[in-house]
């Protein structure tokens, strides 16, 4: 891990709401390297979503810089930003945000439209991604016929469609039940560990946040100095039964189920 994918310098975001000034982000200096999985934890109202929106070029900071793949996106004109959102960033939302009238496959294909790929290439890539998130069998299903966890998997596949430099996940487990949310965060961990996907996830859930490599803390728009090591960064064991890598704190092998 050496190449910086994302870097912010003195990022401020100030809102004016009915005469009141709200400082949503204050002096954020963040560095994310290629292949990192950072979770940013904070209570609601701490500015998590604002930070993610600014990082993903959905919103502009009041001051400061956001450098994505070496390019300062804060100086780019509005009409250039869509390219950043299309090619450099993949978004995952709390509410999945799939288009209800499109099938799982079509939802995944959507960001690839107009990228110069042929229809066949797009279809193949979308199928590959759905297979990666474990939904190969459900590609024709519309979102309403998928469970919440499955919908979020589709959203993850969609976020990866154009092979972005960074995936930004905004409370990706916020709408999921206890069992499913771990499946999702493990899926993100797997993508990071096996495919090197760089991920920044914001959440208020400590247990979920701890699945990343690094856990940062946001309070009242400020990034705290303390930083914790996440589970992904911790030492790994090798399962004696199947020979695959397992987190050190696991009681059972998630691959073969053997007691460790």
């Amino acid at each position: 891990m050496s190449e910086l994918v994302l870097e912010t310098e003195k990022l401020d975001k100030i809102y004016k709401l009915g005469g009141r000034t709200i400082r949503a982000l204050s002096d954020i200096n963040l560095k994310v390297e290629k292949g990192d999985f950072v979770s940013i934890m904070g209570p609601s109202g701490s500015g998590k979503t604002t930070l993610l929106n600014v990082l993903g070029c959905l919103d502009r900071p009041t001051s400061g810089k956001v450098i994505l793949d070496g390019v300062d996106v804060t100086v780019l004109p509005e009409k250039e930003l869509y390219k950043i959102r299309r090619y450099k960033v993949g978004f995952i939302f709390q509410t999945f945000n799939l288009l209800p009238y499109l099938s799982a496959l079509e939802n995944v294909e959507l960001p690839m439209e107009g990228t110069g790929k042929s229809k066949r290439e797009i279809r193949e890539r979308a199928r590959e991604l759905l297979k990666l998130v474990g939904l190969a069998e459900r590609e024709d299903h519309k979102p309403l016929r998928l469970s919440a966890g499955e919908q979020q998997r589709v959203a993850i596949a969609r976020a990866l469609a154009n092979n972005p430099s960074i995936v930004l996940a905004d409370e990706p487990t916020g709408n999921l039940d206890a069992k499913t949310k771990y499946e999702i965060v493990r899926l993100l961990g797997k993508l990071n560990a096996e495919h090197g996907t760089t991920i920044v996830m914001v959440t208020h859930d400590g247990a979920i946040a701890s699945h990343a490599r690094r856990v940062l803390f946001l309070r009242d728009g400020k990034l705290l100095e303390k930083e914790k090591m996440g589970l992904l960064a911790k030492e790994k064991l090798v399962c004696p039964a199947c020979g695959r890598e397992v987190q050190a704190d696991h009681a059972f092998c998630p691959h073969c189920g053997r007691k460790l």
Partner: peptide
């Protein structure tokens, strides 16, 4: 409106 937001978030331009 929400759909428009989604389209923009995943990289659709204003013209798209």
């Amino acid at each position: 409106t929400r759909e428009i937001g989604i389209l923009k978030a995943i990289g659709f331009s204003n013209w798209n």
